[in-house]
Every structure is written in C-alpha cells, then in structure tokens.
Design a protein around this nucleic acid. Structure first.
Lengths: 138, 138
DNA sequence: GTTCTTGCAAAATATTTGCAAGACG
DNA sequence: CGTCTTGCAAATATTTTGCAAGAAC
C-alpha cells in the first residue's frame, strides 16, 4: 500500500493520518492476514506497543479494523457431552453477550458445513456470535 | 450433577476422581454455559486458581472439556475492506493453524446464515476453524 | 496556547510454572 | 517409599492506563 492510499483510508474513517498510524495501516495491509498486537510489535520496531495499541483501538472504534477472537474475556471451558473421548463431537455455536458478558451455548443449532480451500486440514471449529442475549435485549 | 455421576464422567475419561476435580466438574455442569478460568475461580472459593487451571488442562487433554476461543494467542486485528464505515460487512471465516500459529483469512468463503433462537440480537460473528494450514499439512 | 499524539514506565490482568508439603496407595 | 495432587508464591505474558514532553494547528 502506498502513502497516498494509506492517507485516503485513514481520512475516510475520520482518522487523522499521523506518521505512526500510516505505518500501522501499511503493516496491516502488507500482512494480508490478521495480526495480533505482539505480531505488530515485532514487525514495527519503531513504535512503542502502547502506541500501536492505542492506534488499533482507535481504528477499531472507527471501523477501520475488526477484531477476531471469541468473546472478550479469554478462554472459556465447557463440558463435552459427546461419548467419543477422542474427538469433540458436540460442538455447537456460542453466543457472547456484549452487555452481560456471558457466553451461551446454542446447543440446538448445528455448525455449518464449511468447504475449505485445497490444503487446509480442519480439526475443530469455533463459531461465536456476539450481540445481546434475550435477557439483555429486553 | 450428583457425586456418582461426576465420578463416572471423570473415570470414563481416565481421570482419577479427586475431591477437587469433582468440585470443578460439578461447577461446570451446573453452569450450563462455558466458563472462563476467572469465573470458575469466583464460583469455587476453596480451590486455588492454579489447581483449577491444572484440572482444566487435564480435562482438555482428556477431551472432557473443550475450549471456546479464537486461535490461541489473544486478539487479532484485520483491516476492514468494506465501504460501510458504520458496520463490518466484510466478515469471513478465519483459519488458525495449530502448528505455525498463524491466522488466515478465508476471504472466498461466506459466513453461514445462522437463525438464532428468539430473543437473541446478533451483532457480529466470528467463525474460526482450527487445524493445519496448507503449508503445514504438507 | 490549546489540543492531539507519542513514548516511557508501570499498573492491571491473565496465564503458566516451580517447588515443597501432603495425600494416596 | 514412590507417585500423584495440591496450595502458595512467583514468573510470564498480555492488555491497558498515567503522565509529561513534544508535535500539530
């Protein structure tokens, strides 16, 4: 991504194109895959991690980047219901409520059948839908 | 969940049913939704978090619990490609490689259309498939 | 000069390990 | 006794904030 395009992208999201922000946008664009904060830290040695963090937060708030994770709190654990003790068979979608921050099991729903491109070997699938749970959307 | 059932579950997964582990299994069963380590810490005041953590790790290794999250490293950021600056429209599934620990965008794939039960208000969706990427499955 | 941005340090969280004491067989 | 389990403390890692100096306007 060239300078002009980076400036254009930032401005179209109402973000002032400072030098640091341009570097971060270009790094994200160059990666062509999602990067974590620490991956960006390693790629961009000239900017402090707090600066990268603040830029990413700003980008997220202005819908320039989106975030890939499950819920907002870290890992959650759930009892397996399947009889198969070698594989997780009982996987189902989960719903994370952005208000009460609880995760719900959508047991009754099936995971979709995704056909992957050549070469990918799937093992498990996590599908998390975020929004408001029935209690919090009242 | 009663004691006998908890013992049975643990033993069927080749886990010795110690007092602590029984408490943890029962807590997970009672919750009926996935819990994070800190949620379990708050629920189970009698067991140290490191003990809960070690039990959960053991449970996971023996396929008694499964884990809900995205990738293993925390949050990842990706540039939005959509023109809509209010919403994320360009969401697509992601593939997390358990070997090289990179996350890939499956741009070409569509997110499935999930019909939620009454009351849920969806906002965003994250679909993460884990396994081996083309490079690592060679 | 006023506001915005940045770097550094450090606080706040979250995850994981070392180790010695105790339980179990 | 020898192995497994546990609690406590602490090492790591990660995310987030306070603050003062500097840049931008």
């Amino acid at each position: 991504m060239n300078e002009a395009r980076a400036v254009e992208i930032l401005e179209s999201h109402d973000i002032k194109p400072t030098a640091n922000r341009l570097v971060i946008v270009k790094a994200l664009a160059a990666a062509e895959r999602p990067l974590s904060l620490s991956e960006l830290e390693n790629k961009i040695l000239t900017i402090d991690k707090s600066g990268i963090f603040r830029s990413l937060t700003l980008f997220r708030d202005n819908h320039l980047v989106h975030v890939i994770e499950g819920g907002t709190e870290g890992v959650k654990y759930e009892l397996c219901k399947s009889r198969d003790h070698e594989h997780d068979e009982d996987q189902h979608p989960h719903f994370y409520c952005e208000r009460c921050q609880k995760t719900f099991c959508l047991d009754e729903l099936e995971l979709p059948d995704i056909v992957l491109p050549e070469g990918y070997e799937p093992h498990t699938m996590n599908l998390i839908i975020k929004g408001r749970c029935p209690e919090c959307s009242k």
